[in-house]
């Protein structure tokens, strides 16, 4: 509270015209960029979500039809639920894998050059495009793909496993594969900045390895985990192409609803869905930020 007051008072006391103008000018580029490329498009989407559409055109209007249809359809709820399901499961797996990898890199590799080298190794898959990394799973997981052939050769199964491809399994597998690095990087970043003296202190006070992990390392890496979480959750919730390819168009998330609408020139309806998705994601991030104050802990 006192901070707020002093801030409000301070500029007044030091008010000089030149100073003020310089400040405005310094803030202007970023403000303009954000206005033009962030706020204006979002405002446009919100406006269009109230417009009407014919089969091949849209017309300005102020109607709630798009929202009424969206909330009136049972499919919407199912699709939002599926989107949350994908986000949650992907989050759980990327966190488990990302945390383990980061932990190994940060605490088990003592030499910094090797640490950096191994970290770069993690990024190798990112040298190819997202789509290629995703699609390369398809021949691997297919009915006559390498995975099934190998399992049959080993005598583990008699019939090819159908659920390997074009299923929730393949969708989540692709998500985890695509997005784990987004978890590794921020967690690794916070872990290397943990003061080693704290770990020694824990040890000196008789903490076991597990206790050190749970009571010292985990709380101190929370900001990294949170940043990774925000990355993964927003990426998964906004995705449509992974779901389309890996499920063979059989499953849907909110992104696919939007892309279907756009394909059929139903822009207002797509905009309405986008607004609801945006609010949903903002709420999710809002909740996440209640757990950790990223700014304070960075």
């Amino acid at each position: 509270m006192s901070e707020g007051v002093s801030e409000a008072v301070a500029p007044k006391a030091a008010w000089r015209p030149g100073n003020d103008l310089t400040g405005w000018l310094q803030a202007a580029p970023l403000t303009l960029i954000l206005l033009a490329f962030l706020l204006a498009p979002i405002a446009m989407i919100v406006v269009v979500s109230f417009w009407g559409a014919t089969e091949f055109s849209i017309y300005p209007d102020f109607q709630f039809d798009n929202y009424a249809f969206l909330f009136g359809s049972e499919v919407t709820y199912r699709v939002f639920l599926a989107t949350f399901k994908y986000a949650f499961i992907t989050w759980a797996f990327t966190l488990a894998i990302g945390f383990t990898v980061a932990y190994f890199l940060a605490f088990h590799i003592r030499s910094q050059p090797i640490q950096i080298a191994l970290f770069l190794v993690c990024t190798i898959p990112f040298w190819t495009s997202n789509i290629i990394r995703m699609i390369s799973w398809i021949p691997f997981l297919g009915r006559n793909g390498i995975a099934n052939q190998t399992l049959i050769d080993w005598g583990l199964i008699d019939q090819p496993l159908e659920w390997l491809l074009y299923s929730d399994f393949s969708v989540i597998l692709a998500f985890v594969h695509l997005y784990t690095l987004f978890m590794v990087v921020p967690i690794f970043n916070t872990m290397v900045r943990i003061d080693r003296a704290l770990l020694e202190a824990a040890r000196d006070n008789g903490a076991s390895g597990l206790q050190t992990l749970v009571h010292v390392i985990l709380p101190l890496t929370k900001p990294g985990i949170m940043i990774g979480t925000i990355f993964v959750v927003t990426l998964v919730m906004g995705d449509f192409i992974t779901v389309r390819f890996m499920s063979g168009s059989q499953r849907a998330n909110v992104g696919r609803l939007i892309s279907n609408d756009i394909g059929l020139l139903q822009y207002p309806s797509a905009a309405a869905t986008a607004v609801v998705l945006l609010l949903t994601v903002l709420i999710v991030i809002g909740i996440l930020l209640r757990f950790v104050n990223i700014r304070k802990e960075l």
Binding site: I138, P139, G142, R143, N144, L165, Y166, R244, S247, G248, S249, Q250
Partner: peptide
């Protein structure tokens, strides 16, 4: 009943050629 749905020409070719 369905293995997948296809939207582009290439997808339909791959689904058929791979035996999916």
């Amino acid at each position: 009943q369905f293995r997948a749905f296809w939207k582009t020409f290439d997808e339909s070719v791959n689904l058929m050629a791979s035996g999916e």
